[in-house]
């Protein structure tokens, strides 16, 4: 049972005039990993949504997100959060929950990012996706 931040990928498509925008979930081949960590969480996998762990002993977690189907530069996603360590039981030990405070990103492949649900919990306890990434449209 792990606590991880749930992320979903979206894009905004405008009509030819540019007046009307449509939201669409986007499946993209991505590589995702923590900044400063050698291990990659997702290595060139087609993803419409994904989960990443936040830091237990720090309040800023940064991730490098790269589209593997283009030569565009990767983006760095910065997540600012509070940590709340809770003792579960003698058998399970402690678990650390997070509360999202702010998110920032560079804008090479990502257009923008929003917090949907600030409470980061386990997949069993989760009440919904935590953040939504709007990627630049290919159109």
């Amino acid at each position: 049972m792990y606590v991880s931040m749930a992320v979903e990928n979206y894009e905004v498509i405008f009509d030819s005039v540019g007046d009307n925008a449509t939201l669409r979930q986007r499946t993209l081949p991505l590589s995702v990993g923590g900044v400063g960590v050698d291990s990659i969480i997702y290595d060139s996998i087609s993803l419409a949504e994904f989960n990443v762990p936040l830091k237990v002993f720090d309040t800023v977690s940064q991730f490098r997100i790269m589209r593997t189907d283009t030569t565009l530069l990767s983006d760095t996603l910065s997540v600012y959060h509070d940590n709340n360590m809770e003792f579960l039981s003698l058998e399970c030990g402690c678990i650390t929950y997070h509360t999202l405070r702010r998110v920032e990103t560079t804008t090479n492949i990502i257009d923008s990012i929003i917090i949907l649900n600030e409470d980061v919990r386990t997949s069993i306890e989760s009440t919904g996706t935590n953040i939504r990434i709007y990627f630049h449209s290919d159109d």
């Binding site: 923590g34 960590v37 291990s39 969480i41 762990p53 830091k55 237990v56 002993f57 720090d58 977690s61 360590m85 003792f87 003698l90 030990g93 402690c94 650390t96």
Partner: peptide, 19 residues
Amino acid sequence: IGNVVVKDDYWGGETVIDY
């Protein structure tokens, strides 16, 4: 409760908590 080890498996780091 003593000697509860908390690890961050992905980012690294470890601490021991005593209640």
